[in-house]
Structures are given as structure tokens and as C-alpha cells.
């Protein structure tokens, strides 16, 4: 009962949010929603203990695929988005063969190198990828006209609602996966792959599965982005964005599902609202770097640890007995 009220409030807040913002802030909001899916999908892959530097390029695979399918074949946009996501997952599956021969640091470097190769292919081949200039005039989501209802997705607010629904559905899937026995297996592979394997877990297979799943959802975020901004090029998915994803994850913390979301929202607010309005835009990477180092030094468990402490303190104050009952 209380839960459903909380959910209702959340839905109402999400629905009302764009109406409280200016037009340019609405545009940022759409990108924020897309970035949340990007960073949460990234966390799924980190569950098995591997940190990749190719995640945003995999996102780009989803973006390019969906854009090309609509541009060249005139495919209906939601279908092209699904195919873009599948393509991102498929590319990750292919990459897993060389990459999962490596672990830790070598995996990190390997993922970076293979991502750069994909970016080079985009730059090198004008046909079909458009070369360094990339793709322009990518179709948006087609309008919906049912009787008196007319929805035009060039309107940021409308696209925002579409993105929120898609991202919420994806987050629900990611959440279910994490809480399932499958998620437990991912954790097991991370913490002690020797023991997991001795218990019959095909470690390589589950590492690959986490990588492929995370990439599929990164592909969705790429497809959402491409049909919103309408133009992409190899630099849309460059190292700078990858550093942002890492910063969101590290500043927010990766121990919980919501940690990376906190990091993404907090830094986007800092970035767009504070820095841009104050005219510090040029110094963005510098400031991100400072924020990342400061958070590693002073908040090593991320923003999520603040939330945990806050909740614990709140429970301790309101119902000391109730809180104690839970931990015998």
C-alpha cells in the first residue's frame, strides 16, 4: 500500500518534471534520461568484475545501426531501435572472443583498443557511416495521430515521455536480472571466480552474458539518442563521454543499483545547470577530473554510501526497536 503510493508520487513527479523546466533544460533532461540507461547498463557489466572502456562505442553501434536502417531502408523507427540494440549485443558477443582471454588491466586496454578500431571504421568508411562528418538528418520518431490525439516527438517533452517509458522498462529488466539467481551468479564470478567455477559455473560464459546484455542496453540508449539529436558522428561516442560514464559510476558508487543513477543525475545537474550557466563549459573535463579525484579521496564508496548512512540514521531515530529486530 505505502509502496504503491510512493510509486504514484514518483510517476507524477516524472510526468510533471519537464513542465517545470525551460526549453533548453528539457533538452538536457532527455539526454539525462538516456544517460541513466547508459550508466546503469554499464554497471551490469561491472557486476562480473570487468570494467570496459568500450561501452560508449558499443552505444554508438546501436546508434549507427538504428540510424542507417531508417535512413537507407526506411525502417520504422521503434523497430530499427530494437535491431540497433541487437546489433550492439552481437558486436559485443564477437568482441568477447578476443577480450575474455584477458582480465583486469589487460581487459581494460583491450576494450579501449577494440572500441577505437570501431570508431576508426566509422571515420574511414564514408559509405555507409558518413566518415568523420557522420550521419545527418536522421529520422525522428514518427508522429502519432490517433483521432484528436497528435503527438509530435520533435517536442522535447514528448520525446522525454517516450524515453522515460523505454528507459523505465529497460531498468526494470536490469533490476530483475540483478535480483535473480542470474545476478547472484554474476556476483559470484566477480568475488571468487575459482570457487564459482568449482561449483559448476562456466565463468567465461557468464562474463560474456553480462557483457552482451550490458551492450544490448547500451545499444538502446544509443538508438534513443540518435533519433533525438538527429545527427551523430564518431566523436559523439568518444573517450570524453566514456570518462563521463566512469565518473558517474565512480562518484555515485557501483555497490547498489541506484548508485550510478545518483552519480549521473548529480553530475549532470552540476554540469548543465551550474557550470553552463556560470560559463565554465570549456573547463568541463577538468572539473569532472577534479570531482572524480575528490570523490575517490573523500567519498570512496560513492554518493550511495551517503544514502545508506542517511537511511540507517533515519531508521535509528524513528524506530530503534524496529531497526534492531532486522539484524539479530
Amino acid at each position: 500500500m505505502r509502496k504503491s503510493i510512493i510509486w504514484l508520487v514518483c510517476v507524477a513527479a516524472l510526468a510533471a518534471l519537464p513542465h517545470l523546466l525551460s526549453f533548453s533544460q528539457q533538452e538536457i533532461l532527455v539526454v539525462l534520461v538516456i544517460n541513466i540507461l547508459l550508466v546503469v547498463s554499464y554497471r551490469l557489466m561491472t557486476l562480473t568484475g570487468e570494467w570496459s572502456l568500450g561501452h560508449v562505442v558499443i552505444m554508438g553501434v546501436g546508434a549507427y545501426t538504428s540510424a542507417l536502417l531508417t535512413k537507407n531502408l526506411g525502417m520504422y523507427v521503434p523497430v530499427s531501435m530494437i535491431l540497433g540494440s541487437l546489433m550492439a549485443a552481437f558486436v559485443a558477443f564477437l568482441l568477447s572472443f578476443p577480450l575474455f582471454r584477458m582480465k583486469g588491466f589487460y581487459f581494460l586496454i583491450g576494450s579501449f583498443a577494440s572500441a577505437e578500431i570501431i570508431r576508426l571504421l566509422w571515420k574511414r568508411f564514408r559509405d555507409p557511416f558518413g566518415g568523420p562528418k557522420g550521419l545527418k538528418l536522421i529520422d525522428g520518431l514518427p508522429d502519432i495521430n490517433i483521432g484528436p490525439i497528435h503527438i509530435d516527438f520533435f517536442e522535447p517533452t514528448h520525446y522525454y515521455y517516450f524515453a522515460v517509458i523505454v528507459v523505465a522498462a529497460c531498468l526494470w529488466i536490469l533490476w530483475r536480472i540483478e535480483r535473480s539467481l542470474l545476478g547472484l551468479t554474476f556476483h559470484a564470478v566477480h568475488w571468487q571466480d575459482k570457487l564459482a567455477q568449482a561449483s559448476g559455473v562456466d565463468v567465461r560464459r557468464f562474463r560474456t552474458l553480462a557483457f552482451v546484455l550490458a551492450s544490448g542496453f547500451a545499444g538502446v540508449s544509443g538508438a534513443l539518442l540518435t533519433h533525438y539529436i538527429g545527427t551523430i558522428n564518431p566523436n559523439t561516442f568518444d573517450v570524453e563521454l566514456m570518462v563521463f560514464v566512469l565518473t558517474w559510476a565512480i562518484v555515485g558508487g557501483t555497490a547498489t543499483f541506484y548508485g550510478p543513477i545518483l552519480g549521473c543525475v548529480a553530475l549532470t545537474v552540476l554540469n548543465e545547470i551550474v557550470l553552463r550557466e556560470m560559463g565554465f563549459e570549456q573547463a568541463r573535463p577538468l572539473i569532472y577530473g577534479v570531482v572524480m579525484i575528490a570523490s575517490i579521496l573523500f567519498l570512496p564508496n560513492g554518493l550511495e554510501s551517503l544514502v545508506k548512512r542517511g537511511v540507517a540514521a533515519w531508521q535509528g531515530r524513528t524506530g530503534g526497536a524496529g531497526a534492531k529486530e532486522k539484524t539479530p
Partner: peptide
């Protein structure tokens, strides 16, 4: 110990959802 039951209850995406 749940990890020990992995072989008897093999997880999959479909099961998870």
C-alpha cells in the same frame, strides 16, 4: 551456498524475468 545449487537450478535471462 546458493551458488552451490547453480547446477541444479541453472539461471538464465528468461528465468530471471
Amino acid at each position: 551456498v546458493l551458488v552451490g545449487t547453480h547446477m541444479e537450478f541453472p539461471p538464465s535471462i528468461w528465468n530471471a524475468l
